[in-house]
């Protein structure tokens, strides 16, 4: 090491330590704060967040039919249940279900015929069949996910197969009798 005379300042050890620690700590905090925007930039951007709600006109949906729409880049099924389908859903013993929910839990009060669910299988995220005409509705007359064989009933509840939960009901409101706003 250096061999020029260096005046030792032994008595100052504590102050020296304090300045070193303060500088290091301050620098570390700064680096941490700088990291925030660099991490946050990967979150949804403002234009994506602005698309967080979707309006759907449901006036043209006939009984027993469903439409697929997109909300937050995910498929959404809006289905108008027939009286028979409603009755079938209500006949089920809720206690026997894997994810116990009544049809009323999954629809808006007074509008049990409108079933709005995400078209995303709760198993691994495939889009179940059953919303389009002529598609398989599975063993329980609702939706059927072809990826790993999950069967959903007329209320979109899991009945058979590997999926752990019922099809998710997104937050939505009726803004009028014929328009719903999802999100």
């Amino acid at each position: 090491m250096a061999s020029l005379p260096e005046t030792a300042e032994g008595g100052d050890v504590r102050r020296r330590d304090f300045i070193y620690i303060a500088t290091t700590a301050f620098g570390a905090v700064g680096a941490g704060v700088v990291a925030v925007p660099f991490i946050n930039q990967m979150n949804p951007s403002a234009d994506v967040r602005a698309m967080a709600t979707t309006e759907v006109d449901i006036s043209a949906i006939e009984e027993g039919m469903a439409v697929k729409t997109i909300w937050q880049s995910k498929p959404v099924f809006v289905k108008r249940l027939t009286a028979a389908e409603i009755a079938e859903a209500n006949r089920v013993d809720v206690a026997s279900l894997r994810d116990p929910q009544t049809l009323a839990d999954r629809t808006k009060p007074g509008k049990p015929q409108w079933l709005v669910t995400l078209g995303v299988c709760t198993h691994l995220g495939c889009v179940p069949l059953g919303a389009g005409q002529g598609e398989s509705k599975g063993d329980y007359n609702g939706y059927f996910c072809p990826c790993h064989g999950s069967h959903y009933d007329t209320a979109g509840r899991i009945r058979k197969g590997p999926a752990p939960y019922n099809l998710e009901v997104p937050p939505y409101e009726f803004t009028s009798d014929t328009v719903i706003e999802i999100g």
Partner: peptide
């Protein structure tokens, strides 16, 4: 412009 206006802190980066 998307980066400048919509991406979180995009203008900064």
């Amino acid at each position: 412009e998307h980066i400048m206006r919509d991406v979180n802190s995009g203008w900064l980066i």
